[in-house]
């Protein structure tokens, strides 16, 4: 485990050195990413500026959800880029090369890419998160902060899991499925607001199928002391584990895909 982490570090160092040869492009990419996500944030702010609140949630409260969701996604985007471009690896036949190396394939796919340009979303999400934590008086050592950070990691795992599933599809069909954008980018769009404002179907989907609710809403409600409790309180405190569990399941599915690939040789 520790050894794998070290090797992952070597991969990342290599990827960074490769990307830094095109420094200007990386900086511009990060700025652009910051701009695109920043504009979305401006839209959210503008709505609160006009309407004041959304079903009893203030901007500062929603900002916590927004910050958590975006930091989670940004982390997953930075680490999980390899899965998002995985279909190309299969199409070109270069996946065989990964099979020839004495490491897990999911590990290698994750390690091969490291997308620095997505720090734009990370910076923006962190800024909003800090603002929210300060506004709520939560930026101090304590169980709440641990839960927030843990849930962000769990959320990143959930997003990573979706990226893994998306990549797994490439084992079976070369037609890439845009549909997964619904879960990742649609998911972050959805999770920026309290899950309680949505219809039942959407809420259940993001709780039971893809457990994004546990990335911010479920723990957020507890941390903020809001009435929209979901299940017993210990469940909220276990939120980080849900994401990790989901990621584990997705990795099992990946294995099924890999086995299929190795038996069809396509």
């Amino acid at each position: 485990m520790l050894e794998s982490l070290r090797v992952y570090g070597c991969y990342v160092a290599v990827a960074l050195r490769g990307q830094l040869q095109y420094r200007g492009s990386v900086v511009m990419g990060a700025l652009g990413n910051l701009m695109v996500t920043g504009v979305e944030l401006f839209g959210l702010w503008a709505l609160f500026d006009r309407f004041g609140q959304i079903q009893g949630w203030t901007l500062a409260e929603v900002a916590l959800l927004y910050g958590m969701a975006n930091v989670s996604l940004a982390l997953a985007e930075i680490v999980g880029r390899g899965f998002r471009v995985f279909d190309q690896l299969v199409k070109s036949g270069d996946f065989d090369r990964l099979l020839l190396r004495p490491r897990g394939t999911a590990f290698q796919v994750a390690a091969q890419h490291f997308e620095l340009a997505r720090v734009g979303r990370l910076i923006q999400g962190l800024a909003v998160l800090v603002y929210a934590l300060v506004a709520q008086g939560l930026l101090r050592p304590g169980a709440e902060l641990v839960l927030v950070v843990g849930s962000i990691v769990g959320g990143a795992c959930t997003f990573m899991g979706v990226f893994v599933l998306q990549a797994t599809v490439a084992f079976f069909t070369i037609e890439s499925l845009e549909l997964f954008a619904i879960i990742t980018y649609g998911g972050v769009e959805t999770a920026q607001y309290p899950l309680s404002i949505y219809g039942d179907g959407l809420r259940r989907f993001f709780t039971w199928v893809v457990p994004l609710a546990f990335a911010n809403f479920v723990p957020g409600v507890v941390v903020l002391g809001r009435p929209e409790r979901f299940g017993p309180e210990w469940l909220a405190w276990a939120s980080p584990l849900v994401g990790v569990g989901f990621f584990w399941v997705c990795l099992r599915v990946w294995r099924v895909g890999e086995r299929y690939y190795r038996s069809t040789g396509s």
């Binding site: 095109y22 200007g24 492009s25 900086v27 511009m28 990419g29 700025l31 652009g32 990413n33 701009m35 695109v36 920043g38 504009v39």
Partner: peptide, 11 residues
């Protein structure tokens, strides 16, 4: 070199 300008435009 940059896709940067284009993301700026998208924003």
């Amino acid at each position: 070199t940059g896709r940067g300008l284009h993301s700026l435009v998208i924003g």
